[in-house]
């Protein structure tokens, strides 16, 4: 059954602002959770992070999460939205010829990587859960968001119709959505789900009016500074 069909069934079934559909199919003893986040027109929301927090402390491995990368290419952060587990080190390699000066004044992590190219700076460890908005002090239009979560079960809707979280052990979870296209305090309400040994799917429809997506939708105007 395709994600699209599922969403359609879900939309037909759900009258409230949060539509939920759990679909069962046989798998091994860890499941894949797919989540589709759509706006009120039914269009997939490209900039959204999904993470599932186990209700009971289900984590048994305490290994350090692998290093993540926030790249800089053609005067843009890649990806625009990054989700990592608490304690993750993030590298900020600059692949442009022009120098970038990465900074954040967010509560979850305030830092600065003074003007550099290549890999001049050591990775930054994000040790507090929350959202870190990052910018470049040279290029005011450059921006990205790092979402730090207390769970290894997360995914991003990045240009696809759904976000997939693989290898989720059975148990009860609270599924959260975070999108920078809504103010921090107006994020969609979390949803509880019980994961069994089968694939699960959730449709989340955001009824609030979203901010415009990041990036240029119209290339005809140069918006650079004066």
């Amino acid at each position: 059954m395709s994600g699209q069909a599922l969403r359609q069934i879900s939309r037909a079934a759900a009258a409230g602002w949060l539509g939920v559909l759990i679909c069962a199919a046989a798998t091994a003893n860890a499941a894949t959770l797919t989540v589709a986040v759509t706006d009120r027109a039914g269009t997939p929301v490209s900039d959204a992070v999904i993470y599932a927090v186990p209700s009971h402390n289900a984590r048994n491995d305490t290994a350090t999460p692998p290093t993540a990368v926030m790249d800089q290419r053609e005067k843009a952060f890649v990806p625009h939205l990054l989700v990592v587990e608490t304690g993750t080190a993030v590298e900020f390699p600059n692949h442009d010829t022009v120098g970038h000066h990465v900074y954040s004044f967010s509560d979850a992590k305030s830092f600065e990587l003074p003007l550099y190219s290549g890999r001049a700076h050591a990775p930054i460890v994000f040790d507090t859960p929350g959202v870190v908005d990052i910018g470049c002090n040279i290029h005011d239009h450059m921006e990205a968001h790092i979402v730090i979560v207390d769970t290894p079960y997360f995914g991003v809707m990045s240009g696809s119709d759904t976000a997939a979280i693989v290898d989720v052990p059975p148990g009860q979870y609270t599924v959260h959505v975070y999108t920078p296209r809504l103010p921090p305090r107006s994020q969609p309400a979390p949803h509880s789900i019980v994961i069994t040994n089968s694939a699960a799917h959730i449709d989340i429809s955001i009824e609030q009016r979203l901010r415009p997506p990041h990036g240029r939708t119209n290339r005809s105007l140069e918006w650079s500074a004066y």
């Binding site: 000066h101 900074y103 004044f105 600065e112 910018g135 002090n137 040279i138 005011d140 140069e222 650079s224 004066y226």
Partner: peptide
């Protein structure tokens, strides 16, 4: 001078000889 922002307020200070901030055309 482009001090790194410590809050949502971003300050910039130009010093020298320059055009006033007005033209939308001359961005090249």
């Amino acid at each position: 001078w482009r001090p790194v922002p410590r809050s949502a307020n971003r300050h910039r200070l130009k010093l020298g000889a320059f055009y006033p901030r007005a033209s939308l055309e001359n961005v090249g």
